[in-house]
Design a binder for these strands. Structure first.
Lengths: 197, 197
DNA sequence: TCACAAACGGAACATCGCTCCGTATAGTGA
DNA sequence: TCACTATACGGAGCGATGTTCCGTTTGTGA
């Protein structure tokens, strides 16, 4: 289990705990203003700390990104079960959940792109997303497949990759965002099997 | 019309013409080996020329990329008409053409990613792709829509963007390439309308 | 042959991610 | 209250990269 920063295994110094929170807040603000790819220096400046401080708390920028969006990712994971229980069909639940995933990505400048970055430092981010979100997606996809609603030759990982890619370069809530939603919708529509009377 | 380098409006010096070709050849080789994002220095070194020479011939890296792939892009454009004439249906032609587009992107390390890059220097590349390929795609899509085979609420630009994005991060002919083909296939499947008796 | 425009090469500048180490300070036991 | 030490901080510095700039070299026409 990853240490979320509030763990008590080793109590950190008070200034360290304060700085970690300051950094998360500053990073969140900078990510909104300048995107997830904002220079580390800019985040350090916004938080009023030095470069060394950032890298001690968050060894790579990916760790900082995870720290900022952890709660939202976890929330996305937890909606999967609710949707499955409440939707009229597993396929509908899957479609709704993917829509939520797209919403999340589309409102974070550059996050979808960072997920696909080949930079080694983003491996952690990639891994975190996959660890958390793929199982959630798989639970919905498996249910839809078991119900005979969708084809079974596309796995959750591939589907998530595709949906993530379709969000690359989209920012804000404009036409591009609506296009991303529609394209992911088409993708899922393409997976549906005709109901067998 | 963009000057392809062989125009005769102003005859360039012999060494300049030679270097332009040397650069294109070297760039093609480096792109294969290290991807479209290879450092400019690496291309200059491979061509045995200085940095200044690269930038005089190709003001941005995008221009170099265009120079290297121009022929293949043009070929892709010209297949659209053939496919439309020879396929059994416009929708089938569209699907085949998109497959060719995916093939092209998937065999060029990082090209799909560069197309989505927000770097200003890639604008030229973006524009060239759109200028050439979107009309070709539109001709097929329009035909399919007119035949009542596909829905009419997705335009060629959006479709190309989506297909391009689905190829990001894919390299070589492995599983990822096959996934890209399948995902684009699903997208187009999602656009199909049921035949009306 | 000669002069000059054209073209070349690569040093230099700006920006970025990340590391390193000297300095400052929070927490603790006397 | 006061040292003392582990902890944390700050920012200069390194290596890599895209791009510009300018002194030097070279093709070419007269």
């Amino acid at each position: 289990m990853r240490d979320g920063g509030t763990s008590s295994t080793v109590r950190k110094r008070a200034d360290a705990r304060r700085n970690e929170q300051t950094l998360l807040d500053a990073a969140a603000a900078v990510f909104v203003a300048r995107g997830v790819d904002a220079p580390v220096r800019a985040i350090a400046a916004a938080a009023g700390v030095g470069m060394g401080t950032i890298y001690r708390h968050f060894p790579t920028r990916a760790d900082l990104v995870i720290g900022v969006y952890r709660h939202q990712i976890d929330a996305l994971v937890s909606t999967a079960a609710h949707l499955l229980a409440e939707s009229e069909s597993p396929a509908a639940a899957l479609a709704q959940w993917m829509d939520g995933f797209v919403d999340f990505l589309v409102t974070k400048h550059g996050l979808a792109g960072a997920l696909r970055s080949e930079e080694a430092s983003f491996d952690t981010l990639h891994a975190y997303f996959l660890d958390r979100l793929v199982p959630a997606c798989a639970s919905l996809l498996d249910a839809a497949t078991a119900a005979g609603e969708t084809r079974s030759d596309v796995d959750a990982l591939t589907l998530m990759h595709a949906a993530g890619n379709l969000c690359i370069g989209v920012e804000g809530g404009g036409d591009a965002a609506s296009d991303a939603h529609r394209m992911v919708g088409l993708l899922i529509a393409g997976m549906r099997l005709p109901a067998v009377g």
